[in-house]
Design a protein around this nucleic acid. Structure first.
Length: 409
DNA sequence: TCTGGGGTCCTAGGACCC
DNA sequence: TCTGGGGTCCTAGGACCC
């Protein structure tokens, strides 16, 4: 197999719980659960008893009665995250954050300084442990996807290098749900078709998988199973949406209460939007009925905005449509069975964004042309490009970059 | 006191335009 | 003038991830 394993996926172990154990010696080597109502993070000692993230707190305490439950300290986690990412950047500028505790690193330009990728991964783990006091697992491979799978296999506190000559041996025996994008629903669909392992998926029919999972998803997952993953480490990602939501429990609310909650969320997120110097075009109000059915209403505005007044008025109309619509849950009673209310702003752009569209005629060169264009945009606009692109019309002979591409002017 | 909150991406169908 | 197909954007819903 051609290529060299120069991509790292670095992932802090049980991030919040590790920070708590670091800061409070009494918690070390003990089962620790962060978050009371719902488990935000669990130490490995707690995970050994079956406690998992996102688990109901009561269930977690039943599984592990002697666990120490602590309140989350978001500021401490944020500081720890910043310190860890500084260590990443000590090794390479090519860092793609996935979340506060996880990132891809392309170290192909750092080999002359720090040695082979496996050595860089070991040095990185040491630096994070010594300087920040947190255990971190690292996967090393030729592609992003393999590196991510490797770091998961390496946990806890481990390092795993996937030899480019042994990628399929590594990948094919693993269960399909190691694939990024295969959750419970997809996993069950695949299981019903006799697909249990990544190898099973690789040997299944393409048309069959696309019929089962949809064209895009089917092709993507089958490509991953065939070990095809051309994605580069991308340092230029920007937020695509911003939102907030609030769980309300099972108590029935009056419309007025619901509206007050929603307006509060709108004001909060609108402030974040302005602080981030972004405008939004699409407002979505999310709603979950007392029976836990999700519903949403959205509207796309003519002009992007960050005005609380405009956003509040829009959210208000959408909420009214949700509640009073044809099957609105509270139309007659004036009271609404609602277990969650939320707001999302999407279609984010900088205030001075411009839109660019490209057309290129050479069939079959679309992906490379797109990559080149993105590089060009980043160079010309000082790396501040906010790019959103998709390829359309591949069958027409004229692949067109059809989505607007917004960049900081 | 409560029982998660923050995101990304995909899909299908309809309106509309050329 | 009629018709069909391609393309774009919007909306609602859903799966998934950390």
């Amino acid at each position: 197999m051609a290529g060299v394993a120069n991509i790292l996926h670095a992932d802090l172990d049980s991030f919040y719980a590790s920070v708590e154990q670091r800061d409070n010696p009494r918690l070390r080597n003990r089962p620790v659960i962060v978050g009371g109502g719902v488990v935000l993070a669990a130490s490995y000692e707690a995970k050994a008893h079956g406690v998992r993230s996102a688990m109901n707190g009561r269930q977690a305490r039943l599984l592990c009665p002697h666990a120490i439950v602590v309140e989350p300290r978001m500021e401490a986690y944020s500081e720890a995250s910043t310190a860890v990412f500084e260590r990443f950047h000590d090794f390479t500028p090519l860092v793609e954050p996935l979340s506060p505790d996880e990132a891809f690193l392309d170290v192909s330009g750092a080999l002359n300084i720090f040695g082979p990728a496996a050595s860089i991964a070991a040095q990185l783990r040491t630096r994070v442990l010594v300087d920040v006091g947190l255990p971190i697992s690292v996967g090393v491979a030729r592609t992003k996807f393999l590196a991510k799978v490797a770091s998961a296999q390496a946990k806890p506190d481990g390092l795993l290098v996937v030899d480019p000559d042994r990628e399929r041996e590594f990948l094919h025996p693993l269960p399909v749900d190691v694939l990024w994008g295969v959750g419970p629903v997809t996993s069950e669909k695949l299981g019903n078709h006799g697909v249990e392992t990544v190898g099973d998926l690789a040997s299944s029919g393409r048309a069959e998988m696309q019929a089962l999972l949809g064209a895009g998803t089917g092709r993507h997952l089958r490509d991953l199973a065939h070990n095809l993953d051309p994605r580069k480490v991308d340092t230029g990602r920007r937020d695509r949406s911003m939102g907030a939501q609030r769980a309300l429990g099972v108590r029935v609310r009056t419309r007025g209460e619901l509206r007050t909650d929603l307006i509060g969320l709108v004001e909060k997120v609108a402030a974040r939007l302005r602080k981030a110097e972004r405008l939004t075009r699409t407002v979505t109000v999310r709603f979950r009925t007392a029976e836990l059915r999700a519903e949403s209403r959205s509207r796309t505005l003519l002009e992007p905005t960050a005005s609380t007044e405009v956003l509040t008025a829009t959210a208000d109309e959408l909420l009214a449509n949700l509640v009073d619509g044809p099957q609105g849950p509270g139309a007659r009673l004036g009271r609404v069975g609602c277990s969650l209310i939320g707001i999302t702003f999407s279609g984010l752009a900088p205030p001075d964004a411009v839109q660019l569209a490209f057309r290129f005629p050479e069939q079959g060169k679309a992906t490379e042309a797109l990559d080149d264009m993105m590089d060009d945009i980043r160079t010309r606009w000082g790396g501040k490009a906010v790019a959103r692109a998709s390829l359309m019309g591949a069958g027409s002979g004229f692949p067109v970059l059809a989505r607007p591409t917004a960049v900081d002017a």
